[in-house]
């Protein structure tokens, strides 16, 4: 049967594949971008101090694996902290 004008556009294979791939990191409880933003400064400082952030803040770590934008912002913050105050 052909697609009618009212049908939603078909999702391309690559997009579906990425969606399925993301299920591996999908959990019932996840932080939102706002929740991550609220603590990402604390999280970055903990990382710089050598703390085990994955154990201390597992939901934040989980979110970073799924959210490219938050991960980029976190890495940019690490860059500033590491390079502004080299030990």
């Amino acid at each position: 049967m052909g697609q009618t004008q009212n049908d939603p556009p078909q999702l391309p294979d690559e997009l579906i594949e990425n969606l399925i791939r993301s299920l591996e990191h999908t959990h019932e409880q996840e932080c939102t971008c706002d929740e991550v933003f609220a603590v990402v400064d604390q999280y970055a400082e903990a990382e710089i101090h050598g703390d085990d952030v994955a154990r201390l803040m597992p939901l934040i770590k989980q979110h970073m694996e799924l959210c490219h934008n938050c991960c980029e912002e976190y890495e940019a913050l690490l860059d500033i902290l590491e390079k502004s105050n080299p030990s």
Partner: peptide, 18 residues
């Protein structure tokens, strides 16, 4: 006050810039 004040400021700057 969960981080240094300047780290908090940097995160705001990054959000705006990116």
């Amino acid at each position: 006050g969960r981080s240094m004040f300047t780290t908090w400021v940097h995160k705001i700057a990054i959000r705006i810039a990116l």
